[in-house]
């Protein structure tokens, strides 16, 4: 067909311009014609045809002619204002997120107040389930990562310190770094990817299957029933997971210190209370509580904003994880500034 159409085109091109305008397609013997064929005929010699064209193909040619015109007129010119419109839309989008986030936070505070006033109404089972899911089941992976990071951190620090003969300082670096920064950060980032994505997806699916609407119709507070146990659960579980990560990371550090610098386990453990001020430990634990709250809050925020369609669900989960990790790093930076004078 390609060869034939090319030959026909060449034949048409050989005609003088005046003749080309009068050329007609003789389609009397036509047995089949599809949309692309009709558009080709319309594009060449405007689809003019002889009277013996079968009626069904006439209709197709007319449609092709109209469709060609619509397609031409539908071509959009580049809009110079588009970047500004997009910028404005992005700004409005951010404002919308902010407004939703503030109202969700306010609702959580109200529900927390209700829970303290009427503790019997508080969904304790949900809370304990959340602590188990985001705390206990997260332990293996966070402790493994903590252990490996402890090994790597100690190994790299030891190599540098060895050259200065300051071997024992490795205990200071590892213990303070782990208890104050790495433990809470590692645990929170893993929680954002693990528990945060689960929370967003769970709320999103509940939106898709109208389970959230069903709760609302029953007169049950969605934040009180679904968000509060998640946020409180992770805020309680996070310091515990963070503590376990600290221990695993210090264990890894101890092992690496023995292998690289020959520091015995006993010596490491004896030095630990001397070099690690208890304030560092409490700062780490305090930060974990805030990180846990933030990760669950961001996850629920995105989960409740999911529209009832699959595209929104996937995009919502991705955004939730990215935003939760960003929030953790941002909060960590704020803590670093606020607590800069603490030893």
């Amino acid at each position: 067909m390609d060869g034939q159409s090319e030959r026909l085109k060449q034949d048409l091109a050989r005609l003088s311009p005046s003749m080309r305008g009068k050329a007609l397609w003789q389609l009397g013997g036509l047995t089949a014609l599809d949309d692309v064929g009709a558009l080709w005929l319309v594009g060449n010699s405007a689809g003019r045809h002889t009277a013996d064209t079968p009626p069904q193909f006439r209709v197709l040619l007319q449609q092709a002619e109209r469709a060609g015109k619509v397609a031409q007129s539908g071509r959009r010119r580049p809009d110079l204002l588009l970047p500004f419109v997009m910028l404005g839309n992005a700004g409005l989008h951010v404002l919308d997120h902010l407004r939703f986030g503030i109202s969700l936070l306010g609702q959580i505070v109200i529900d927390l107040g209700r829970a303290t006033r009427w503790p019997r109404e508080f969904p304790l089972r949900e809370l304990s389930a959340n602590i188990f899911r985001s705390g206990v089941t997260a332990l293996p992976v966070t402790m493994l990562v903590g252990f490996l990071v402890g090994v790597v951190l100690t190994y790299l620090s030891a190599l540098q310190l060895k050259s200065y003969g300051a071997d024992l300082l490795v205990i200071n670096i590892v213990s303070v770094g782990v208890a104050r920064e790495l433990g809470p950060m590692l645990a929170s980032i893993i929680a954002a990817g693990r528990s945060g994505s689960t929370m967003t997806a769970q709320l999103g699916v509940m939106r898709v299957t109208e389970e959230i609407e069903a709760l609302q119709v029953m007169g049950i507070s969605v934040t009180g029933r679904l968000v509060l146990p998640k946020v409180l659960g992770l805020a309680i579980a996070m310091p515990l997971v963070s503590f376990a990560t600290d221990i695993a990371a210090l264990g890894g550090g101890m092992l690496a210190a023995k292998v690289v610098l020959g520091i015995e386990f006993n010596a490491f453990l004896e030095a630990l209370p001397r070099v690690l001020d208890v304030a560092h430990f409490w700062i780490g634990i305090g930060k974990s509580v805030v990180f846990g709250f933030a990760v669950a809050f961001v996850a629920c925020h995105y989960g409740l904003r999911i529209r009832p369609n699959t595209e929104s669900l996937g995009a919502g989960v991705t955004r939730s994880v990215v935003a939760a990790i960003t929030a953790v790093i941002l909060l960590d930076a704020i803590f670093a500034i606020l607590l800069r004078n603490v030893p």
């Binding site: 109208e210 389970e211 609407e213 069903a214 029953m218 007169g219």
Partner: peptide, 15 residues
């Protein structure tokens, strides 16, 4: 709302 019940098209049971 607690005095009314609703049957959703797809049930909306808690999965």
């Amino acid at each position: 709302r607690r005095r009314m019940g609703m049957l959703f098209q797809n049930g909306a049971l808690y999965s």
